[in-house]
Nucleic acid binder design. Sequence first.
DNA 1: TATCGTTATATAAATAAAAATATAACGATA
DNA 2: TATCGTTATATTTTTATTTATATAACGATA
Lengths: 114, 114
Amino acid sequence: MEDAPYNLNGRIWMEVNSGKVLGHGRVELLERIQASGSIRQAALQMKMSYKQAWDLVNHINSNFESPIVISHRGGKGGGNAVVTEAGLNLISHFHLLQEKFNAFLKENNGSVQI
Amino acid sequence: MEDAPYNLNGRIWMEVNSGKVLGHGRVELLERIQASGSIRQAALQMKMSYKQAWDLVNHINSNFESPIVISHRGGKGGGNAVVTEAGLNLISHFHLLQEKFNAFLKENNGSVQI
DNA sequence: TATCGTTATATAAATAAAAATATAACGATA
DNA sequence: TATCGTTATATTTTTATTTATATAACGATA
């Protein structure tokens, strides 16, 4: 009979209409869009295809009443994307949840008798 | 400025040597092995291939000092598999963690201003 | 008004994951 | 000792996912 130490790990996400809309990866994408002003640049930074990034943004936008990312094509720089006030609220709220969750995980590390 | 209600959802798992070894799905697999005495039956019940189930069991076993599932081939019924005392401890410990986590999720449902 | 790099979208190609199939090993028991 | 259903393992086939490629639309600005 000995001890098996383990680390507890996990993921959380926000659901709307019973579907995942916002987790760790999407929040990082929003932050990079906000920082760079570009969906393409954010995608490059995260080593994902533009299509994937666009699909994620589109999915997020279509699951909230207010737009989260507003994008424009054409013009100076070819186009741009910005995260709205609503989006910034989502980001900071998710960070809050994530911090609580991190504490939960830390508290629940331990070991089992095996 | 309106409200976006959301449900918080997520998954937790136990890690050993920085690798995932036990989460919701694997615990269910162990329970079904215990109940049926057969890896094959457990796999069928969970609609996964025998290979996938065996790989999971093998992965679990090789990440703990003590065996979690002991299997035999041949003999009455063609063979069988049993979950060890150590495995049962893992199962009940994970359930404990999962219950705490469920409470955490419930507490942290809410809404964001968007 | 021609150019630029980005957004938006569709389609094809490549890769990865999962499922299906096949086969040997096994040992109680009939 | 022949049979049985399961474990254990490898290989093939199928499916799903991801990535790559292509192209049109766009509007500030030079």
